[in-house]
Structures are given as structure tokens and as C-alpha cells.
Computed example of a mutant assay.
Amino acid sequence: MEERRQQGRRSTELLLEVVDAHTGQRLGRIVDLSMDGFMLFSEALLTCDSLWECRLIPLSPIEGVQEIRLGADCLWTRPAADGQHCWAGFHIIDLAEDQEALLENLLHQM
């Protein structure tokens, strides 16, 4: 598979949850993250080409970051081995300047 990422993603041991900004529904846990996108392990069966307004929420205190709001496009999904979860890759498509600074801070602390 051809690598198309412009920035390398960082795996994280931090617990970072992603929540739908409109409904409050938990979408899943971040597995890796960059300024351009993230991979999610999800309890929901997500669909490709779906657009989301998300809140990225650290479950443990991270200095200067309570949540990050962003828009993301789900580029791909794959079922997990258990058939009840999925892996999903997202491209960040909307990130305000103040939220970009928070994301940079979070990545720096990873």
C-alpha cells in the first residue's frame, strides 16, 4: 500500500477519546495521531467517506489540553477481529488556529 501521509503519526499510550461533537456519542479511542489525521479503534461501526465534528478528549490530565475540537473525514474502515469493533483512519479537514495550537501541544507531550 502506498504511503500518502505527509506527516508521520505518533502512537500513543495516552488515553484519548473521540466524541461526536453534536450527539456526545463516544466514537472510540485514538491509536495514533498527527497534525493531519488519526487512527481510531471504535466500538461503533463507522462508514467510509463520513464527515465528523469531533471532540478529542484526554482521559488523563495533559497540561494545557482539556479537549480539541476538529472536523475529520473518515477515509477507511476495517473490521476488528471480534467483528464488533472497527479500525478507522481519519484525515483532519477542519482545525481552527487555537485548536491547532492545542494539538501541537498534545503531540509535543506524547
Rank of each mutant, 00 (worst) to 15 (best):
W87V: 08
T77E: 03
L56S: 09
A80Y: 11
M39C: 03
E104N: 12
C74Y: 02
Q66S: 14
T47F: 00
L40P: 01
G64N: 08
L103N: 09
T47Y: 02
E53P: 00
L46S: 05
W87Q: 09
F41C: 04
M39W: 05
A81P: 00
D32L: 04
F38E: 05
L40C: 05
G64F: 01
R55V: 07
D49S: 11
Q84S: 12
G37H: 05
A44M: 07
V65C: 06
C86Y: 05
I93G: 13
T77H: 03
Q66P: 04
I57M: 11
D36S: 15
I92M: 14
P61T: 05
N105L: 15
R78E: 12
L75A: 12
I57P: 09
S60L: 10
D73N: 14
T77D: 02
R55W: 04
M39N: 06
M39I: 00
W87Y: 15
T77P: 00
C48W: 02
G64I: 05
D32H: 06
F90L: 12
L70K: 01
C54H: 10
P61C: 04
L45Y: 02
L46Y: 04
R78N: 09
L33T: 01
M35N: 11
M35G: 13
D36A: 14
E100A: 15
C74M: 03
D49H: 10
L51E: 14
A88Q: 05
C48I: 01
E97G: 04
Q84Y: 10
I57G: 03
